[in-house]
Simulated assay, not measured.
Amino acid sequence: MDRTITRTGTYTPFLIHAALARAPWRLLLLPVALLAMLGYALKLFTRARLKEINQHLLLGSEISRADLEPVTASFADRVMRLNTLPGALRQIEEDRAAGRRLVLATASYRLYVEAIAARLRFDDVIATNSILGLDARVTAKIDGENCYGPAKLRMIEAWFQQQGIDRSKVHVRFYSDHASDAPVMEWADEAFATTPSPKMRALAMKRGWPVVDWTA
């Protein structure tokens, strides 16, 4: 999703949006979040742990679904209004018109991705999940794997099994801007490098994947 359908990333903007909506004082913790990003860059902890830390700082250790819903709804509306790539929207509509099943597989959190996917009229979502606490409260802890890199392919394959889909009997198209998705690109029947990062562009040239520009 991030930089494939959207122009920019969505996770940090979502956390800032949520802090502004629910507890503006949490924005004072942004310098701590920046320090956490530095720690990740120095490989002191994983990308998944970075997500957990920043969610804890800007959204809190847990939140009820009822309190979360208006925040995710307003953020999804903002993404649709200000942060989508025109070419991506056209391709989504083209694939829908062709009768394809649309699945959004993203490292972003399901807690806000589902609202965006609903507006884009995706059929299914595979995303980073949150552990649910008492009374189904959404916590800052990741449930399972961060849906990124090789883990994304594992989660897609697990979804196929859960849905009872025989991989050998379906044709899979996959679109991505980022080289971290190379495992899924190689697994797919058709792979498209969409508005790619420099590393993804170089990999697409090497693998023979079509390169498309969705900015216009």
Rank of each mutant, 00 (worst) to 15 (best):
L44M: 15
G39N: 08
P24L: 11
T72D: 08
A76K: 09
T139M: 07
V79Q: 10
N83S: 13
I5K: 02
A36P: 04
V113P: 01
R173F: 08
R81Y: 03
L104Y: 03
V32H: 07
I131H: 06
M185Y: 07
I63W: 04
R167D: 00
I116P: 14
L50K: 14
Q55Y: 11
F174V: 09
S108E: 11
H56T: 15
A66Y: 01
R154E: 06
Y112N: 02
V184C: 06
K206L: 14
S108Y: 08
P31D: 06
T4V: 08
L38I: 15
S180G: 06
E52V: 13
R110F: 03
V184K: 00
R49H: 12
Y109A: 13
R90A: 13
K169H: 13
A136P: 01
L102M: 15
E145L: 09
A202V: 14
G60M: 13
E62G: 00
K51N: 12
L29S: 10
L102C: 12
V138F: 15
R119N: 07
A179G: 00
F122Q: 01
F160T: 03
V212G: 00
G9F: 01
T194H: 02
L82F: 02
M155T: 04
H17I: 02
D177I: 03
L59Y: 01
L132K: 07
E62F: 06
A107V: 08
N83V: 02
A179F: 07
T6P: 03
I63S: 01
Q163N: 05
L89E: 12
I16D: 01
L85C: 09
F160C: 10
K206S: 12
V170N: 05
A98W: 10
W159N: 02
G87I: 09
A23H: 15
R207E: 04
G144W: 07
R121C: 11
G149M: 04
V79W: 00
K152I: 09
V212M: 13
I165H: 04
I116G: 10
T84F: 05
E52I: 08
A216W: 04
D2M: 10
D67M: 14
W25R: 06
G60Y: 09
H17S: 00
V79H: 00
G164K: 03
D181S: 02
T195S: 15
Q162L: 13
A76G: 12
L30E: 03
I131W: 08
A191K: 07
E186Y: 07
D2N: 12
P183A: 13
V170Q: 02
D123K: 11
A105W: 01
L203N: 05
